[in-house]
Every structure is written in C-alpha cells, then in structure tokens.
Design a binder for these strands. Sequence first.
DNA 1: AATCATCTTACCGTT
DNA 2: AACGGTCCAGATGATT
Length: 503
Amino acid sequence: MASEKLTEYELKRLENIRRNDEMLAALKIQSKATELFAAAKRQRVEAKSYNVKSEKKPKTETPVVIRRSLRSRGMPPDSKGLSDDSVDTSKLKDESPTKFKASDKISCPITIAYDEAVSDRPLIEAIMGMSKRETHSRASNGEVFSGSKDGDFLNDKREAGSGVSFHTEKRREDNAWTSLQLQSLTLKAENVARVVPGRITSVRFFPSSNARMIVAGNKFGNVGFWNVDFAGDEGNGIYLYRPHKVPISGILVQEHCLSKIYTSCYDGFIRMMDAENQAFNMVFSSDDSIFSLSQPTNDVNSFYIGEGRGGLSIWDNRVGKCSSKLALHEDRINTIDFNSRNPHIIATGSSDATACTWDLRSINGDQLKVLSTFTHKRAVQSAYFSRSGCTLATTSTDDVIGIYTGANFEDASTIYHYNQTGRWLSSFRAIWGWDDSNIFIGNMKRGVDVVSPVERSRVMTLQSPLMTAIPCRFDAHPYEIGTLAGATSGGQVYMWTTAEDAS
DNA sequence: AATCATCTTACCGTT
DNA sequence: AACGGTCCAGATGATT
C-alpha cells in the first residue's frame, strides 16, 4: 500500500541521487573553493534598508519579559502577578509611534514604525494586487498556477513560465533538476536588504505564485515587509511596522487570503494585519508567551499555538474559542508542523529535548496520544516534515540534524551539524527545500549548508561575499523553486535565486 | 522544584 | 580596526 509506494519512491530517488554522485562531488570541490575565497575577504556592503530616522533609533529599551501565566507560576488566578503593563513600563518616550498596550484587545492602527514620511500605500496596493491576481488565476485555471500573461505588476524580471507551480512540479518524481538548481543558486546584490532592525526571529514568503514578498519579524516586535519586485519611484519596497513589543515567534499568511497577515509573539498575542482594513487586529491572547504558530493547510480557521511550557492550544477562529488546550511537552514548543500526506499528524519540536509526532484525532481532555518521540540530548529547535510527508527532520542544539523515515518514522539517522549559535543569534532550524532531497540550514561561517538526508551529509555550502552575516532563519518560496530567503541577526534578508535559464 | 548566577556567542554603531 | 553594548537562549552548576 502506502508504505510500498513509499519505498518505491524512495528507491527511485536513491537511484537518481546515485546518478548525480559525480556532479555532487564536483560541487563539493567547488564549494570548498568558494569557502576559501569568501574567507579571504569580507566586505561591508550597505544595500537596501528600511528607512530610519536617526532620532528614532530603536533603543533596546524594555527588558524582555517572558509572559507566564499565573497557573504556570503556581499562583492563584486572582493574585497580583505580572501585570500586562509591566512589560512596557519604563522609558517609552522614544518609542515608535505604534503604541502597543496589552489592553488593546480589539485593534491598533497600522503605522509605519520609523519613518512616518514614507507612505505604506504602495505596500497595501501590492498586497491587494497580489491577492486579486491570485484569486483570478485560481478561478481561471482551477489550479494554482501563474499564467503571468497579465504580469504588469511584476516588471517581469522573470521569464514567462518561470513561475512554475510547486504543486505541479513536485509530481515529477525525477529530481534531476535538484543538483542543477543547487549549482545555479546565486545571491544577487539587489536581493539583499535590511528589512528590520536587529535580530530576525521569523521569516516568511507570501504564498503567491506571481510575486516575491517577504515578511520578517524581529526581536523587538517589528514586522517588516520586503516587496522584492518593487519597481516604484518612492522608497525601496521595504515597510516596517511594530504590532508587538517583544520577539515575534511566528508569521502566517494564508494562501487564499493574502491580505491577512498573522503574527504571534512572546507577548502572548496573535495579531492580524489586515491590509484591506488597515488595522492590526487582536486575534488571540494568552497569559503565556507564544513560541510557535502553525495551521493545517486545509483549515484556515484553525490556529495551532505553542504557548508556555509545552502547551499547545487549538484556536477556532470562527467561534473565537480554544477548542483544545493540550499539555504536550515539558518545555517550550519551538515548532509545529503538519504532515502533508496526513493532515491529522503533526510534529512538534521542543526545548525539552524531544520532537514528537501526534495524531490529532486522539485528543482526550488535555492529553494527546504521542505517536513517536524522537529524543535529542539538548533542546530541539525544529521538527519539520518533508514535502511529501515521508521524512521528518529535526534540528537540535546537541549539534545534530535528525532524519526519520519509514512508515512510522522509525528509521532514524543523524547528521552532525554545529548548531551553537550562542546568545546573539537565533537558533538554526533546518528547513526542507522543494522536494525531499535537500535540507537547508545556516552555518556559523556565514554560509548555507545544503544537506542531503539520503546521503546523510552536507553536499554543498552556499556562500557569497554579499552574505555579511550569519543566516539563521529560512523560508523556501512555496511556488518558486530555488528561491530561498535567509534571515540574519542584523535584520538582513538574503534572497537566493536560481539563474533563470529559460527551459 | 524552582530560582539564581554565570558563561557562551556575533552584529552593529561608535570611536 | 578596535571596542563596547547588546540582554532572557540555553546549558550548567549552586543555592533555596
């Protein structure tokens, strides 16, 4: 059945990968060479950046207070604990205009965080335009595909036909393109930008087949948008907001509704930026910090929220209530991921040094029956299913990338990867590329390691003199194969792309 | 059990 | 080119 098909698929891939051995070997040599070259000199290039008025610099004002509920601190619910305001008591005078108060339960206005003179109208228009085109192409095509015959908006740097839908592409079981694409991955100067100040904690592409819009959230609660294809006169396509005051832990943009951008935060709130109504609305609030946010692909009203010490809340946005509050882990849940083959299966990665798979159909009170537990020696920073859903990849501070395959992911292997990012960088999280054959993860030498889960080793390292800082957090464009965003602790985003040789 | 104290770490702005 | 500020992640070890 399914498992037989899987092995067949795996075998086929293995065969392909063996065929590409020589090419990969060549790549290794090449990457060694670039490594040496890059190490030789590192220049400081100032590329695109958000607009900052120097008087309004983001001072690191407020001490970061991790929210903890009264319950989890062992206090009765009515006792006076950490009040909402204690998060932002001191030194708020030089704050950005988006005054955040925890008491803003309903909404707060969308405001440019730094340069008020720069209008965000182009952004709103771009988002609304994307949104419109997306629904149009879906309606006319049945399937998501960028016909791009009406590509007036996107200045058509890309050739027609390059916006190949991932969904159609992935059906091709031939992965011969992989090493070719890998080889052609490049970082261009125009694809480097400082999107937010400070450390980026979360980065996301808009799930649009005909645009490249990147959202980044940082340590200070800023959310920055980078319209990579921006071609207007005013500004540079970068827009900065501040819907939160402490680190952003998750960004969510729904494929069918690009005008709603959800952000989760250590402050315990989920807000939705509604580009249509120009507001940051409160969606969800918790007494605990939110560390992770996810959503099943086919249910836009369900939010899976990792909060507090190991809690997972399932929020029904239609009803406006939590349908479940589950106690899954001993420590914070860093990632929540849904399996594409079976939407009832999720994987969680936790600082309690485990990753787990769960069956959502087995909810019983605040308990969920664990399917499998994958144990690391230290905190697990991420646990993501591959595109096909057949493999799970974990990243841990114990310097291991874990690979789990098989019908119940029982077939485990480990790949060594140095993951000691220290205190000033966001932790590394290995993400999957556009099929099951590649994993991308940052390294401490300002490179992007490409790891083959089948070979169980690094097959190449992306490096560029333009990458002046360590890329920690990544997102792969959901529709454009080979378009990869890496985000740094200095607020920069690097968008790697493949050389567009028309095929 | 929980809290505290300490150490690690890289980037950026200022000199 | 060198230096200081960052500040709450995560581990370890000591103290209640």
